[in-house]
Amino acid sequence: MSAILAKKLGMTQLFLEDGTVERVTVLEAGPCPVTALRTQERDGYTAVQLGFGAAKEKHLTKPELGHLKKADAPPVRHLVEFRDEGEGLEVGATVTVEAFEVGDKVKIAGTSKGKGFQGTIKRHNFSSGPKSHGSHNVRAPGSIGASAWPARVMKGIRGPGQMGNKRITQKGLEVVRIDADQNLLIVRGSVPGPRNGVVEVRTDG
């Protein structure tokens, strides 16, 4: 398995050699320095910690700078651990897009776009009510209670509330093209989060 941190640059389309059009997302993946390795004997689990995103030293705390200096890594803005990864890697090494190959299936995790407080129609795809004959129930969710039992609103119903701004993992994406010179990873389909958002890329399976 392979893993890397990336920045979502946006979506576009590619014309492949057979003339088909692919809707793709362009990711700026790596280079990611290996800043720590977790082992079963010492930490109780196996993982690799990768850094991403150049930062100024003044924007990091002294403990963060000391941790990165110990790993001989430059100042980075993001540190993320990938469980059950890191085989064949050493602290101080660098992970690049060349860890992936065209045709690899990947899963990408990120924080979805926040859409604020939304009603049930937008948030849960409820149907709207009648819009004529004096109806006052156009976008309201309708009755949500029960009868004499339980005489309250059950927990877990789909109601209005905050939409988005959650960790989402998109599976089954395929690597369409790799540009190692510009650290670009181009995958088929959409990826969670806004432009310039940081996402985690792992091989799927």
Rank of each mutant, 00 (worst) to 15 (best):
M1A: 09
I4M: 02
L5E: 07
A6E: 07
G10Y: 09
Q13I: 01
Q13G: 02
Q13D: 04
E17L: 12
E17S: 13
V21Y: 00
V21R: 15
R23I: 03
V24K: 07
V24I: 14
V26E: 04
A29L: 07
P31D: 07
P31F: 05
C32E: 06
V34A: 09
A36M: 04
T39H: 11
E41A: 15
E41W: 02
R42V: 12
G44K: 10
Y45D: 07
Y45G: 00
A47Q: 02
Q49K: 04
Q49N: 05
L50C: 06
L50S: 02
G51I: 10
F52R: 00
A55E: 15
A55H: 04
L60W: 06
L60R: 02
E64K: 10
L65P: 04
G66N: 14
G66V: 00
G66L: 08
G66R: 12
G66A: 07
H67G: 03
H67Y: 14
H67M: 05
K70I: 01
K70F: 07
A71V: 03
D72W: 07
A73Y: 03
P74V: 09
P74R: 13
V80G: 00
E81W: 02
E81F: 07
R83L: 11
R83V: 03
R83T: 04
G86T: 04
E87F: 11
E87D: 13
G88M: 08
T94D: 07
T96H: 13
V97E: 02
D104Q: 08
K105S: 13
V106L: 07
K107H: 13
I108N: 01
I108Y: 01
A109H: 01
G110C: 08
G110K: 06
T111M: 11
T111C: 06
S112I: 04
K113F: 00
G116W: 09
F117V: 14
I121G: 00
I121V: 15
K122G: 00
K122H: 06
N125D: 14
N125P: 00
F126M: 05
F126S: 05
S127C: 05
S128N: 08
S128A: 14
G129E: 06
P130Q: 14
G134V: 08
G134M: 09
G134P: 11
S135A: 10
H136D: 07
V138K: 12
R139D: 11
R139Y: 12
A140D: 11
P141D: 13
A146Q: 13
S147H: 14
A148M: 12
W149V: 12
W149H: 12
V153K: 15
V153F: 12
V153I: 15
M154C: 02
G156H: 10
G156A: 11
G156Q: 11
I157C: 04
R158D: 12
R158K: 15
K166D: 04
I168E: 10
I168A: 04
K171R: 15
L173I: 06
I178D: 01
A180K: 15
Q182D: 11
N183C: 10
N183V: 03
I186S: 08
G189A: 10
V191C: 07
P192K: 12
P192H: 12
G193P: 02
G193V: 03
N196C: 01
G197L: 03
V199Y: 01
V201I: 11
D204Y: 13
G205A: 10
G205Y: 05
